[in-house]
Design a protein around this nucleic acid. Structure first.
Lengths: 347, 347
DNA sequence: CCTCCGGATTGAAAGGTTTCACAAATCTGG
DNA sequence: CCAGATTTGTGAAACCTTTCAATCCGGAGG
């Protein structure tokens, strides 16, 4: 009963072949695929048998060509090895699964901070006529994003607040996040606090620092109670380096607490403390940012500012899907972060 | 000079429109795109101007339809939030960039351990006629993979060793990895060693444990010098739990060292030690597996078995691209892991 | 002046699916 | 047994690009 025994695959079978094998017309095969209820059970069975026999695989390119748009969403992530972004992506997957009824896939693209790679992905995605692009861009104000949106592919900016209102976006209130972190430290009795991060280069970090200053002001402390330890990036190594500089300060002016621009930095700092026998939180209290899984898993569990990562991702997808609705207006959604207090700040 | 001012985009321009606008034939536009040297500078300029004017975006679906194959690779990853896999993916990106001359993109799909999601992605990718699929499967012996490969889409299995020789694969020698880990512990004077992991359910973990036993045997120790603390998965929480069980053992039989099936478990164990005031490595030496970035960044930097993660990814892509060569034979590449010794095992 | 040549351009076919107006077959109820 | 409604099935057009054989043209060589 098998149809062929030769080893070499004939060029893969299309609907035309299926139609011929089943003795029906092309249109009927299409109906079996797309509107099974419009076709009698008997013919449907015949067609399905033929499809199995011929190992028919639907040709997505042809479908898309006809349809004009694909059923694919893509997230161009800034850094695939940062747990923060993978969690955001997980939220997107959930939303895509839920919304698409199995008919919507999410592809991930990692720009790894490289503008050229980001541009290459964007170009490919646009040519692919994807249903929409989610992106945490290297540069939130790059004109390419506007162009793409303007040419008709919906774009949602994630975890960045683009200057204008040209796209939908989701973000977290970083000023507030900085504020609650430092307010907590002040409440714990600290009044000389290190800020560790690259606030001169990254907008997010600048905002967190502004929040820190606001908390000081609210407590009646001068801005110089915030001691800047500037890093070049936000890696564990940067945290270690900052820790050494911190330890090198004379005890009279050394901060008793540190607010780190992200958890990686905080973990690096924590490691230096362990090396130098500084006790956490007794000698130095530490607050991180992001509340990645490893923050809770550290030797001294880290107090951290939690961002609703999965929620961020889910919302981004929802905004994206809403773009196709008739009278769509771009929305800027801002979430509020939350302080998670753990041992690194509690005596 | 602009062509239209109305707000609504007319359905996006195709090559036909460009040809009309430039006053040339369709074929010429195609030549400008694909074989620019075959076209005179003058006409090329005209055509390029028209493309810019009309905001022409090439339609990838139509290209693919004609070409029969796309220039996309995809990695279906088992767990997007495990740094191990994101590093493997980074290696793949490098290789794809290098090999494709900007003409090959890698998309990431996260199955998150869910067979249904994995199957959905595989179906979509096959229908998309991607150039090849890289996958760390939920179940390495699932028949679906064979079917796909058999229907003509190249498949490379990553970090798993499928039973047969039906695909190319890249993996790491887990038996050897287990062996060097435990040999190291033995050399440090330990002779009662805990093994922490889910070796009954995961092939990789089973192999690591086999290696551990082999090291014991080589040192003339009985297998019962390995104390199994079985976990349900390999998370930080599992590590914490195992740590508590370990601490609960009577001192007379309590192991003085632990070999953890991955770094997450080791980090969890380390945290419990910190809580319970067990010193590492004095009271308990710890070896992890994978050497993720956080292993080095832990409060007590972890000794760990390093897998060549990026190399794994690069090689996988190379194997995949080699599949299209004429007389291709499937290859099983196995890498050798390497022990990275840090403070968690050194007095 | 004619032929031939090579570079530039053209036109048509092909690739696999979806859609839609339409034909055929079957059923409803009078 | 018939008109009309309903259910099934058909055929052709359309989607946009690439490819390739064929045509066109100006110029070189005879």
């Amino acid at each position: 009963m098998t149809v062929q025994e030769s080893g070499a695959e004939p060029r893969s079978a299309g609907m035309k072949d299926v139609a011929a094998a089943a003795g029906v017309s092309l249109g009927t095969v299409s109906n079996v695929l797309n509107r099974p209820d419009r076709v009698s059970p008997a013919t449907r069975a015949k067609v399905e048998a033929a499809m199995a026999e011929l190992r028919f695989v639907r040709n997505e390119s042809a479908r898309q060509l006809r349809a004009g748009r694909s059923r694919v969403l893509a997230y161009v992530m800034l850094d695939g090895s940062n747990p923060f972004f993978t969690d955001v992506a997980a939220g997107m997957e959930d939303a895509a699964d839920a919304a698409g009824e199995g008919d919507l896939s999410l592809f991930l693209c990692n720009s790894a901070h490289q503008p050229s790679r980001e541009a290459a992905y964007l170009g490919r995605l646009e040519q692919q006529r994807v249903q929409g692009i989610l992106i945490t861009p290297v540069d939130p104000d790059a004109p390419l994003l506007h162009e793409i949106a303007h040419r008709g592919t919906p774009v949602v900016v994630v975890d960045r607040t683009p200057g204008g209102t040209a796209h939908c976006s989701v973000a977290v209130d970083d000023v507030y996040g900085g504020e609650i972190a430092v307010r907590h430290l002040i409440e714990q009795g600290h009044d000389r606090i290190a800020f560790i991060g690259n606030h001169t280069t990254v907008g997010q970090v600048r905002d967190r620092r502004l929040g820190a200053l606001r908390a000081l002001r609210a407590a009646g402390l001068e801005p110089d109670h915030l001691v800047d330890l500037t890093t070049t990036a936000l890696t564990v190594a940067d945290g270690r380096g900052a820790g050494e500089r911190l330890a090198g300060l004379p005890a009279s002016i050394r901060p008793t607490a540190a607010f780190c621009a992200n958890d990686l930095v905080a973990l690096g700092l924590l490691q230096t403390c362990a090396n130098l026998r500084m006790r956490v939180p007794e000698d130095l209290a530490i607050v991180g940012y992001d509340d990645i899984e490893f923050a809770a898993a550290a030797a001294v569990p880290l107090t951290s500012v939690r961002q609703p990562r999965r929620r961020l991702g889910r919302t981004a997808v929802e905004l994206l899907l809403a773009e196709s609705e008739p009278g769509h207006e771009h929305r800027q959604v801002v979430f509020t972060p939350e302080l998670v207090v753990r041992a690194s700040t509690l005596h």
